[in-house]
Design a protein around this nucleic acid. Structure first.
Lengths: 158, 158
DNA sequence: TATTGTTATACTCTATAACTATA
DNA sequence: TATAGTTATAGAGTATAACAATA
């Protein structure tokens, strides 16, 4: 059993400490990931932010949903769903349809334009993945993806 | 009436798409992780945010550094390092010492109090890890930790 | 003149609270 | 009266730009 990388340390003895922690490393890598994803979205020049994409993905993950339900699933305020939806509706990516059973509800649906948009984001994401996962072996990358998915499922993420 | 938008199919067919992507999953899990870490820090009641801890960790990772160097390593504005350092200095966790060679530079050093503080954060982090990694086997957890460390190293994170 | 740290200001993101229309 | 969505307002977090001290 070869020890995991315990060489190549700086001369100053540093304890692994927080950097060996999942929460800390996930947090820091997470901001790097969303920063890069944000820049990729900027290149689309559609005024999209990661939260817009998160809404599309959340919408695509389940059945069509009201804005309140979306807010609940995404863990954001209902007022934020309003502005995100405003923008996405302007782009033609989602549609607001009044629920005839309860005319207070706006049921959101993903349009063909929206699905194509998600596919563009997906392609951009795969390109970013290849940069990011460059130092990983295929096996390591697969194990990482599997573990992340398990964590995401556990915390109720799409 | 026949608004032919293309929801001939129910949108219940799953979209592995972006959710199978590292950037997207890292991003969403990253916000969950920092949210939880933020709440753990709140319990300390010291007014600490994850960025304060990131500064301590960055400082502990290398030799003592000037505020500009810290800003560079952390990828934040120098003015942010000022306010973070102000707070950490008030807590006695770091010390500002003028560099005699270049009296413009404020060299920051981690104090014993600061090191103890990092240890408390580390303990909190390990507790959060156990919750988060609950659905993972020990092997999966180790593989995840190793892969995340490789990614963190690649992007220059502590 | 250029650079370090600081201060002042502005911007982005998001939440809370007030409002409207339906129920 | 209570709830879905909207609008208005406020707060947190961070960056940019102006400023002071030192090089």
């Amino acid at each position: 059993m070869s020890d995991v990388n315990s060489e190549c340390r700086p001369t100053t003895d540093r304890m692994p400490g927080l950097t060996a922690t999942l929460v800390f490393t996930l947090g820091t890598l997470g901001t790097v990931a969303t920063d890069r994803f944000t820049r990729a979205l900027d290149a689309f020049d559609l005024g999209l932010k990661p939260k817009h994409v998160a809404l599309l993905v959340t919408l695509g993950a389940g059945a069509a949903a009201s804005q309140q339900e979306l807010a609940g699933r995404m863990g954001v305020a209902p007022s934020l769903v309003v502005s995100l939806t405003d923008h996405l509706e302007q782009l033609g990516a989602v549609q607001r349809v009044r629920d005839p059973q309860d005319r207070r509800r706006q049921v959101l649906t993903l349009t063909t334009v929206g699905r194509r948009l998600v596919e563009r984001c997906e392609a951009a994401g795969r390109a970013l993945d290849d940069e990011l996962a460059a130092p990983l072996t295929p096996d390591q990358r697969a194990a990482l993806a599997q573990a992340l998915r398990l964590l995401a499922d556990q915390v109720g993420l799409p």
